[in-house]
């Protein structure tokens, strides 16, 4: 009989080498001044206090929260609404499910590049808006429009995933519940409120936890569409980390990573706590 340790050794090794060891090293480096070469110099909490006083980091933190609030405020709601619509009728459900999911399967870099072109002054978005009398503008050049434009791109790319997840969950709700509710005289929205949404609670929690973690880690769209600009208006935490790494400030970059980890761990705990308490 093969020992259990042997069976799990590859997975443990892979996780250890590529996940836990880097996490431990990164944690250590976050308390050091380190360029990747030579010895790391211990600076205690220096990198963290440096971040607190850094306007670029504070801007990145603010932008990231705005990105998460906008993205998670709109994306899952759109996903749920489209899932509810698709759940109404079996006709064309497969077509729309596939259509919504195609952007999810498309490389984010490709999506971002296409949207970058569409959002230019002479792009198709302005051509469509001009029908409604909206003046043309370069959406990614405006400090107030760049971040919402990137959020819109991300929502477009991601809400198909939420639609498919919600649709699967909707189809697993027993029809008896709705039949009983209808017998009791419940209307459509009453059914949604008292049957659908409570039944979807674990799915909603899953979508929000995954979505919030993904939104906090936004990078590809920013890198391709704006490079953090204009004037840092789309600089996010991971982009900030990337820039610090690029300057070989591995200590500061690690500190940013740990700040991000702390935020995500706290938010995930709060979410799970709230959902568990309501159960």
């Amino acid at each position: 009989m093969v020992p259990a340790y042997v069976l799990i050794a590859p997975a443990i090794l892979a996780a250890g080498v590529f996940l836990y060891v880097p996490i431990v090293f990164s944690g250590y480096w976050s308390f050091t001044e380190y360029s990747g070469l030579g010895a790391a110099k211990w600076v205690g909490l220096g990198n963290y206090t440096e971040l607190l006083g850094d306007a670029d980091f504070r801007k990145a933190l603010f932008n990231t929260f705005v990105f998460v609030l906008l993205g998670m405020g709109i994306g899952p709601v759109l996903g749920l609404l489209s899932a509810l619509l698709l759940n109404q009728s079996a006709r064309l459900r497969g077509f729309f499910r596939a259509a919504y999911f195609i952007p999810v399967m498309t490389s984010l870099v490709v999506v971002a590049t296409i949207w970058k072109i569409m959002l230019q002054e002479e792009g198709i978005i302005n051509q469509i808006l001009s029908v409604f009398g909206v003046p043309a503008r370069s959406w990614l050049d405006g400090t107030t429009t760049a971040l919402p434009s990137v959020v819109a791109t991300s929502i477009w790319q991601g809400f198909g995933f939420e639609t498919v997840v919600f649709l699967a969950a909707l189809q697993s709700i027993p029809r008896d519940y709705y039949d009983a509710a209808r017998v009791d005289g419940a209307g459509y929205w009453q059914q949604v409120r008292h049957i659908t949404l409570p039944s979807l609670r674990p799915t909603i929690m899953f979508v929000y936890i995954i979505g919030i973690i993904g939104s906090f880690q936004v990078f590809d769209q920013i890198f391709v569409m704006t490079a953090g600009g204009p004037i840092n208006s789309t600089r996010t935490l991971v982009f900030d980390l990337y820039e610090r790494f690029n300057r070989l400030n591995l200590g500061e970059a690690s500190a940013v990573a740990y700040v991000l980890l702390a935020i995500l761990a706290t938010l995930s705990y709060v979410q799970i706590f709230l959902f568990e308490r309501r159960r």
């Binding site: 020992p3 340790y5 042997v6 090794l13």
Partner: peptide, 18 residues
């Protein structure tokens, strides 16, 4: 013995990786 064997196998894998 099983533990030693498992660790040896793990080290072999590590060696193969690095």
């Amino acid at each position: 013995v099983r533990t030693v064997l498992a660790l040896s196998f793990a080290l072999m894998l590590l060696g193969a990786c690095t």
